[in-house]
């Protein structure tokens, strides 16, 4: 692969990331603590933890909740390095950037200095506010990622339907997931088809044109697929109703998890 082949690197990289991020169920299939719980009870517990994180205004509480999250990571056989990388890369780093100006807000001066001739004062209130903000985002993201990677995708969707989330919303989510995979395959095959006809190197400008054509054909294909899928649904009696097949079974361990979450939230 040529080092300057931006199009190829983008396509291959994006597709590899999507496959890894969305479709890998390796962790959800591990024999860990969270994986062994009934998804309905597990999600209820996580929702309570998220709610507490969102309303917590105390830094210690947030640190404690983040600690619980990391403990769950360890007992659920999730690699800590993988988890930290996954949770720290995007949203918390962005929130750090967003929270940075808050450091210089009004309040008791904690530190002052000059940067490019401008006097900067970090206030203790500003630092506290920024830390609360970053910790809250980090803890929320960590809980959501942990829930997502330790639960199989279809179980999440099934629980949403059991919790009476509107069918159209759950169906759209499920089908997006399903057809993203199909489209990844189509994009990859189309790209290989193009490559086999034009050679191994696609220059920047023709490459842009090819990507544009690809987007158009993908759009047409998705429209067609949309119609066909709808027909297939109609054919089996679909009338837009909320119907789910639940075969989950709650056991002692699940109730223990829920009781532990409620107890922890009660104490803090």
């Amino acid at each position: 692969m040529k080092a300057n082949n931006f199009i190829e690197r983008s396509i291959v990289g994006t597709l590899a990331f999507l496959r890894e991020a969305i479709f890998s169920q390796e962790i959800a299939l591990q024999n860990g603590f969270l994986q062994s719980l009934d998804p309905r009870v597990k999600i209820t517990g996580f929702l309570l933890l998220l709610l507490k994180t969102l309303i917590a205004c105390d830094l210690h509480t947030l640190f404690f909740l983040y600690g619980i999250c990391l403990l769950l990571v360890l007992i659920s056989k999730v690699g800590p390095g993988f988890f930290l990388l996954r949770t720290w890369v995007f949203i918390p780093l962005f929130s750090l950037c967003i929270g940075l100006p808050a450091l210089f807000g009004p309040g008791d001066p904690l530190w002052s200095g000059y940067f490019l001739g401008i006097k900067l004062v970090i206030s203790s209130q500003g630092l506290f506010g920024a830390l609360i903000f970053v910790m809250r985002v980090l803890t929320c993201v960590s809980f959501v990622v942990l829930l997502n990677i330790t639960t199989r995708h279809f179980e999440l969707l099934k629980v949403l339907r059991i919790f009476k989330v509107p069918q159209i919303f759950v169906m759209t989510l499920g089908m997006s997931y399903r057809y993203i995979f199909l489209f990844i395959e189509i994009i990859q095959n189309t790209y290989l088809g193009i490559k086999s006809r034009v050679g191994s190197v696609i220059c920047y400008r023709p490459g842009q044109r090819l990507v544009a054509w690809n987007i158009v054909s993908l759009w047409n294909y998705s429209l067609l697929l949309n119609q066909e899928v709808y027909k297939a649904m109609l054919s089996r009696g679909y009338r837009g109703e909320d119907l789910a097949w639940s075969d989950f079974r709650a056991r002692g361990r699940d109730l223990g998890w829920l009781a532990a979450v409620i107890l922890i939230l009660w104490i803090i």
């Binding site: 279809f154 997931y177 399903r178 089996r236 679909y238 009338r239």
Partner: peptide, 15 residues
Amino acid sequence: FCPTVKEDIVFGPLN
């Protein structure tokens, strides 16, 4: 179009 094979099979009779 369902998340699992089982759900796909029971989709028709449920509906």
